Amino acid sequence: MQRLGVMDLHHAARAVAAAPQAQRAGLAATLCSGAHVAHKYVKRLGRWHPVWGDGSLRAATHSFAKVEGRVMDTRMLDAYITVLQCLERRLRENCRPSGV
């Protein structure tokens, strides 16, 4: 995945918030994985991934419904937390010392 910007987090949270509660954690994981796959694809082939885009988290949200407008309620706060937890898990998994 490319470097994470504030707007990447914002767009991912809007997509996660638009999903039913039971699907939000899975969608966050899908977005993170898709951005990671796209980043590798772009680095290797020099063009955007046909589904996940340019390797940014924002691009990975392109084909998903999003909450519209300037909404900041508990649903959006929960979505931000869900996305951040997913990113934290990915970071911890990728930063483990070898052999662990």
Rank of each mutant, 00 (worst) to 15 (best):
Q21W: 04
M7P: 00
F64N: 11
A19P: 10
G69E: 07
S56H: 05
L4S: 04
M7S: 04
M7H: 04
T30L: 15
R14E: 10
R96D: 07
M1R: 03
R24N: 13
Q85V: 00
G55W: 07
G34V: 09
V71T: 11
L45M: 10
T74I: 12
H36Y: 13
V71L: 13
T82Q: 09
K43G: 14
H49T: 05
L77K: 12
V51C: 00
H11P: 00
D73S: 08
L4H: 08
G5I: 03
Q2W: 00
A18R: 08
H10F: 00
L45V: 06
H11L: 08
R24K: 09
V42N: 03
R3D: 10
A19Q: 15
K43R: 10
D73L: 12
A17W: 11
R44F: 11
H49Y: 13
R14A: 10
V37D: 15
H49F: 12
P20N: 13
A28F: 05
Q2R: 08
H39P: 02
F64D: 00
L27D: 13
V42D: 01
W48N: 13
A38Y: 14
G99Q: 01
R90I: 09
A22Q: 14
H10V: 03
D54Y: 10
L91I: 10
G99C: 01
V67M: 06
A19V: 07
A22E: 15
V6I: 02
M76V: 11
D8C: 05
V6R: 06
L77R: 15
T74L: 13
T61S: 05
S63I: 00
Y41V: 01
H49V: 08
H62L: 02
L45P: 04
M76K: 03
M7I: 07
A38T: 13
V6N: 03
V16N: 12
V37I: 14
A19G: 10
Q21C: 07
A59K: 02
T82N: 10
C32Y: 15
S56V: 01
